[in-house]
């Protein structure tokens, strides 16, 4: 027997868009991306060039990595509000330790991501704290710690290692951004992992029904722990790519990316309630957001305006997806 629905759902309008998104999200999102590119090209003739597309990929890679962690968290029915704080912290470590050697700086930055993810994972998986609270608190702790750290860093000169700077802003073969070369293998691993690995199955399952997982012998805490650890490391990678691009760390480096990471996931069709969606949609979501950002910049929209528009877009798309879900 199906449980009674708590609210009478209004009749569905926009049946075409609804069905298109429900049945072929990738195709629909791809279509939106192409439309956006065409619109940008119409506003600013000559936008669709290999050079501009390369720049789009370059911008999209850090967001793509950040949104990857967010996707994993949301697939398990959680949310990670510490992704941008983790990325900023990683960026800070790279700049602060850059003088001591690239490898060391990168290793410490990744270790920080691991530690943050581990703490989140223990809180959420073992202590059963709500993901929202845990990661919001973690973001608070990281934010405060960064403010403290920024005071000590002013003594030395922060240097972003050249290799990281190259990775975050350089290209090979003329147009292929180096950070895309970091993002692409990550993306492939995530896509394959979610679809065809035991862990991927477990992540979807935990998001869909944790009790069923327990009764089937899956230790939910292990899945959640690993999910948030992966999220922490992915956020750190995003921070490294980001600081490589900006070539300098500041306290709000990744702050605007928090909503964007959620937006990319929501646009990509992953439900915050967990158990359905995937990283493929998120990739398209990140690309759509990046092209949209270019378009808005060309149209001279202020930061405040962009922020409001992103809020509206997240709301609108989440609405369409909510309607696309079956009425039961």
């Amino acid at each position: 027997m199906t449980p009674y629905t708590a609210t009478g759902r209004p009749e569905v309008r926009w049946p075409a868009a609804r069905r298109a998104l429900a049945d072929r999200p990738a195709l629909t999102l791809g279509g939106i991306l192409v439309l956006l590119l065409a619109a940008t090209d119409a506003v600013s003739p000559g936008f669709v060039t290999p050079h501009q597309l390369s720049t789009t990929l370059l911008y999209a890679a850090p967001l793509g990595a950040l949104a990857a962690g967010q996707t994993l968290a949301m697939l398990t029915g959680g949310i990670d509000l510490s992704v941008s704080a983790t990325a900023t912290a990683a960026a800070y470590l790279i700049a602060g330790l850059g003088a001591r050697g690239t490898a060391q700086a990168v290793a410490v930055a990744l270790a920080l991501g691991l530690a943050v993810g581990m703490t989140n994972g223990v809180g959420i998986g073992v202590c059963r704290v709500q993901p929202l609270i845990m990661t919001l608190g973690m973001a608070g702790v990281l934010g405060g710690a960064l403010t403290l750290a920024s005071l000590t860093f002013t003594n030395g000169v922060p240097v972003v290692p050249d290799a990281v700077h190259q990775l975050g802003s350089g290209t090979v073969l003329g147009y292929l951004p180096l950070d895309t070369l970091v993002w692409a293998p990550l993306a492939i691993a995530l896509l394959a992992g979610l679809a065809r690995s035991g862990l991927g199955r477990a992540i979807y399952a935990v998001g869909d029904n944790p009790l069923a997982c327990r009764l089937a012998g899956i230790r939910v805490w292990q899945v959640l722990l690993l999910t948030y650890v992966l999220g922490g490391v992915l956020s750190a990678i995003a921070g490294i790519l980001l600081v490589g691009y900006t070539n300098a760390a500041d306290l709000n480096l990744a702050t605007p990316y928090l909503l964007q990471s959620v937006a990319a996931v929501v646009i990509g069709g992953t439900s915050i309630l967990g158990g359905s969606g995937g990283y493929g949609g998120t990739i398209l979501g990140a690309l759509i957001l990046t092209v949209l950002d270019s378009l808005l910049t060309i149209l001279n929209v202020s930061q405040a305006g962009k922020q409001m528009l992103y809020g509206a877009i997240v709301l609108g798309l989440a609405w369409i997806y909510a309607r696309a879900a079956p009425a039961e």
């Binding site: 199955r201 477990a202 399952a205 869909d208 009790l211 089937a216 012998g217 899956i218 158990g275």
Partner: peptide, 21 residues
Amino acid sequence: VHALLPQRSVRENIALPLYNR
């Protein structure tokens, strides 16, 4: 309701215990 993954396929539901370690 306690045992099923409502949004997942029959195959994933049946295979669930295979991935419990």
